[in-house]
């Protein structure tokens, strides 16, 4: 369902982030993209979400070639994805509730259904009591979980998480890994970019190792 065919990504300025990457991720898989800082993990996720375009090769999602995707169709592709951003992208002038409700507003859901789903999502990440708080009032780990709630609230088919355990201690990182495992068990395709050993050890996922933009053979 996610396919890379000989994908290169060169950023303006000449930095080569990915080189000849080919892979397939099937529906319902749990995959971790591992690699050192700067290896190209975030770049891979950005290509899947069509935030960046490949310099060469082809990326397709749900059998749809993203290069041929028209600008009008892009928003609808993105609504099938749940994105956990490396830099969170929380709106600090909105409540926790409003942050999580944004994808539902975009999808055009009504008030009642929105509030029901937001509560369910916040409950899953253990933030139900903090609906009315500002994200500023949350700890780093709580902010991370808030991002996850926002990424799953609209029940995406694919969850793309970029360093979802960024600066968490092993206990909390483990809890979040378990959370992703439960989403995956519910049928969501989960792709996590991380170099966090705790996550990898807890999930025992299919692992894609990136090294300086090249994909190494998968290691168990």
């Amino acid at each position: 369902m996610i396919r890379f065919e000989h994908v290169d990504k060169r950023y303006p300025g000449g930095i080569i982030a990915l080189q000849d990457v080919s892979l397939r991720i099937e529906r319902g898989e749990l995959v971790v993209i591992a690699g050192a800082s700067g290896a190209g993990k975030s770049t891979m996720l950005k290509l899947i979400a069509a935030v960046e375009q490949p310099s060469a090769g082809r990326v397709s999602v749900n059998d749809e070639d993203l290069r041929g995707l028209r600008a009008r169709a892009l928003p609808y592709l993105r609504r099938q994805l749940g994105l956990v951003f490396q830099d969170h992208k929380l709106l600090f002038d909105r409540s926790v509730f409003d942050n999580v409700a944004l994808p539902l507003a975009i999808a055009g859901l009504g008030r009642k259904e929105t509030s029901r789903r937001v509560d369910a999502a916040l409950d899953k990440v253990g933030l139900l009591g903090r609906s009315h708080a500002s994200p500023i009032a949350l700890s780093g780990g709580e902010q991370q979980r808030l991002c996850i709630a926002r990424a799953i609230v609209h029940r995406p088919a694919i969850l793309l998480a970029d360093e979802p355990t960024g600066n968490l201690d092993p206990d909390h990182a483990g809890a979040i890994a378990t959370l992703f495992e439960s989403f995956n068990r519910a049928g969501v395709t989960v792709v996590i970019a991380t170099h966090d050993r705790v996550v990898i050890e807890r999930l025992r996922p299919r692992r894609l190792d990136l090294q300086a933009g090249r994909l190494l053979e998968a290691a168990p």
Binding site: P75, R78, L81, L91, I106
Partner: peptide
């Protein structure tokens, strides 16, 4: 612009 950027990333149409 942060909110706009985020909205576009998660599938908002320009109209929205």
């Amino acid at each position: 612009r942060d909110e706009i950027e985020l909205s576009r990333l998660i599938g908002a149409t320009p109209g929205f």
